[in-house]
């Protein structure tokens, strides 16, 4: 158990208070950044809302990859399920209340998480990776084929969300969508902090470090991972639903291999195994993408590739991990 308790020791009151303070600081930082984004880039709220939605996807990938150690290249399937779930509910069934759409997205994402969890966790190593890639391609082909429901390659349009709680109408500048997204992100973040630090979250970390030992201790490796996959699906589904609500269109690109791979890049850029890392990575990557592809869309893929190689070579812990390690070293040098 020594390896489990080095980062988090349970049941110490002062420690818990310190962690709650840290969480409060984290929430305040997200809110402050949200307000800063609103004030500084009033014409770019669509991009910021997209960042928020993708951040939910990357957080959900972090739950599976960072905390459980399952390498997957098919995580966009969960995001896409949420997006199409919310979109189809609005376009075909007239469920246009944004909160209800969000709920549909979360449920669709959880179901997709359950299915892909069951499939992906069947194998280990390379076959696992292949399964995850096959899932995302299969989902992509299926959505393309079922064009009566999904609009196929034209995308699903005709999503007209009502006002939030009947009060805040979605406006042309995307202000409501942005605030909706930030609130959703903060709520998710607080919930996930609780989950990853709960005994269940500890169990997941233990599985990543040594599944054999967890099994020897009497823990259910497979069951725990499946549960984490469902939670992850709910988070990704929320992100997809947010994307559907804010852009009012769902495209096949939300079920693409590229999105899955990019989400993984963002996570690794920020740092796996840390919710802050996931957020930092998403914001950095998408902001960078916006700047570079505005300058030269042609070289975007090359630059993503080079960035990825550079991160693997020079900052294997990601931005957040490297920063944290740096400050820890400094703190130790001059106390």
């Amino acid at each position: 158990m020594a390896m489990l308790s080095n980062s988090d020791t349970l049941s110490v009151t002062s420690d818990r208070r310190a962690r709650l303070t840290r969480d409060a600081v984290g929430v305040l930082v997200i809110l402050a950044l949200g307000v800063a984004g609103y004030v500084l880039f009033p014409n770019n709220l669509a991009l910021l809302t997209r960042i928020t939605a993708i951040a939910l996807l990357v957080l959900s990938l972090d739950l599976v990859t960072g905390y459980c150690g399952v390498a997957t290249l098919g995580h966009a399937a969960l995001f896409g399920a949420g997006a199409y779930g919310a979109g189809i509910a609005a376009a075909h069934f007239g469920i246009t209340d944004p909160v209800a759409m969000l709920a549909v997205g979360i449920i669709a994402g959880s179901i997709a998480g359950l299915i892909s969890g069951v499939v992906v966790l069947r194998a280990h190593g390379l076959p696992q990776l292949v399964l995850s890639i096959a899932i995302i391609h299969l989902a992509h082909e299926a959505a393309n084929k079922a064009s009566g429901w999904t609009g196929g390659s034209d995308g699903l349009s005709g999503i007209m969300p009502d006002a939030v709680f009947g009060v805040w109408q979605f406006d042309l500048w995307g202000r409501t969508a942005y605030v909706f997204g930030i609130v959703l992100l903060v709520v998710t973040f607080v919930l996930l902090r609780q989950i990853v630090r709960s005994p269940f979250g500890m169990l997941c970390r233990g599985i990543r470090q040594d599944p054999v030992r967890i099994r020897a201790m009497g823990g259910s490796v497979h069951g725990t991972l499946i549960r984490m996959y469902i939670i992850s699906g709910a988070v990704a589904g929320a992100g997809g639903a947010l994307n559907a609500i804010s852009t009012q269109v769902v495209g096949l690109d939300s079920l693409s291999f590229t999105l899955s791979a990019e989400a993984l890049v963002m996570l690794v850029l920020g740092g796996t195994g840390s919710l802050y890392g996931a957020l930092l990575g998403t914001v950095t990557f998408l902001w960078f993408e916006d700047v570079v592809s505005a300058a030269n869309p042609f070289h975007w893929l090359t630059i993503v590739g080079a960035l990825l190689i550079a991160v693997v070579l020079f900052a294997p812990k990601g931005l957040y991990g490297s920063l944290a390690a740096y400050f820890e070293r400094r703190g130790r040098k001059n106390p």
Binding site: T65, A71, L129, H299, W300, L301, T302, V304, L307, L308
Partner: peptide, 22 residues
């Protein structure tokens, strides 16, 4: 670890695709 290998090789793939496209 596998994740590192996946990232490195997918990075190489992206680079080669971008360069070939160019």
């Amino acid at each position: 670890p596998e994740l590192t290998q996946v990232l490195m090789t997918i990075g190489i793939t992206f680079c080669i695709i971008g360069i070939a496209n160019y």
